[in-house]
Design a protein around this nucleic acid. Structure first.
Lengths: 245, 245
DNA sequence: ATTCGTGCGTGTGTTAGCGCACATAAATAA
DNA sequence: TTATTTATGTGCGCTAACACACGCACGAAT
């Protein structure tokens, strides 16, 4: 059994795992294990980001919060990526909130340490930049999906994106929380979830959704999911989907 | 009068203008003046991008095209930016089409030349990375706006974003083309444009829309426009809006 | 065992935007 | 001038999603 603070756990994060040996050796002592609960906020819109996070088991939602309080998710990050692209893109802050969508663990690194290693170039820089493009693609597709697809399709997409970043088939998540992510009404999520449950694709129980038929979901989802998935695989040269890899 | 192929015209592009003297001296001979008409395609989704483009007077729309042919704009680029972020982010291609939204001129640079100068670091790299974040913010806000706002609000946003990148108050653009950008019906644009015209904010004539009251439009637009604008100013340290700078 | 908070199901009425179908009008070509 | 294309205005029925309002059920706490 690996100790819970063993830095080799960091290899569960694909960006870390892709590093060259010398890069990993240099970064390893700078990585600090952290864990978060559902709903915790890593940083708010406009916050100076002191740390970047490499998720291993947790999932983070990048959420935009309107002046009136309405919210909409613009992207989701798990062990496929990093929270804090603004740190190496140069902006230091973003207009979105980073909030824990699924409890779990990550490794954090000081902003200055991240920037120093990024400046060395090499694989680390390359992977971070490619990840930035992957995220850009995901956000673009979110924009398109918001415009053109139904709540049911978007729920499928959201469930699959989350599932890809989890070890479990059970997503601990209320309809209300999902509605905040999708930027729709809670009733809309309930209705869409009910339809998916009737098709035996998921099981709805109080406080969680369990995926029963991944293939069925992939058949029901809009093309947006596949486009993002394919692009992640292309850009990051590995699979995040159990079926697409 | 500056000759039309005078590379100093390139300084009309804010990214070029921000370079240090030695960087500009190195880039200048690599920049080639080009001009495009409305509707021309710089590259399709998935195309290997041979050139990056620094617009001076033209505007480019980044458009996603669905399998069924429906389209939605994910972002707009003018003399504030560069077409081809995938070249320095490392992906080489993107999932969107780059199409001329307003005819005009630009300077292009070979992909390999761009990458070589990017690799040198310094101001060029810094500006490109910051621009990537600005674009990311714009796309994020497009996603949010698509989810939460009305066609009329989005049309305001779109008109202002276009106007910011033009010298003229007249946008040569049919309702049909705008509808492709916004991902809505042509009739929806006609209706929204009519409402704005009734409020004396714009003038609708066949084939073009003229902005009559910019302040009025800024009062009518959703917060999305201001958020993007403020972030562009912050990240790129200069104004693109006539009112916000 | 009862109470209470939270999560979910459901109904009613409203509205924004869609698809379709034309009518009109302005530009362009013949 | 006349004909033809292209852009815009408008009407009608339809649907997805909205806002609001409950009722119910599960589960934890007393």
């Amino acid at each position: 059994m690996i100790a819970p603070d063993n830095p080799n756990l960091a290899l569960k994060n694909y960006l870390i795992a892709a590093l060259h040996t010398d890069e990993f050796a240099r970064l390893e002592p700078l990585l600090e294990p952290v864990s978060f609960k559902l709903g915790q906020v890593l940083f708010e819109s406009g916050d100076k980001q002191e740390y970047a996070y490499f998720p291993t088991t947790l999932i983070v939602s990048l959420l935009y919060v309107m002046e009136r309080g309405a919210t909409a998710e613009i992207g989701v990050v798990g062990n496929d990526g990093i929270i804090g692209v603004a740190l190496f893109l140069g902006g230091e802050t973003t207009t979105s909130r980073a909030i824990i969508q699924s409890a779990g663990a990550a490794f954090r690194i000081k902003a200055t340490d991240l920037q120093a290693e990024f400046a060395r170039g090499r694989v680390f820089q390359k992977m971070l930049l490619r990840y930035a493009q992957a995220l850009l693609t995901q956000i673009s597709q979110t924009a398109v999906c918001n415009r053109l697809h139904t709540v049911e399709q978007q729920l499928c997409r959201w469930l699959l994106l989350s599932h890809d970043r989890l070890d479990s088939d059970k997503l601990v998540m209320t309809h209300d929380l999902i509605s905040n992510m999708l930027g729709v009404r809670r009733e809309g999520v309930t209705l869409a979830a009910k339809k998916l449950a009737e098709k035996k694709l998921i099981k709805n129980v109080r406080g969680s959704i369990t995926l029963l038929d991944r293939q069925g979901l992939e058949a029901a989802v809009c093309e947006c999911y596949g486009v993002v998935n394919t692009e992640y695989n292309r850009l990051l040269s590995r699979g995040i989907s159990r079926t697409f890899r």
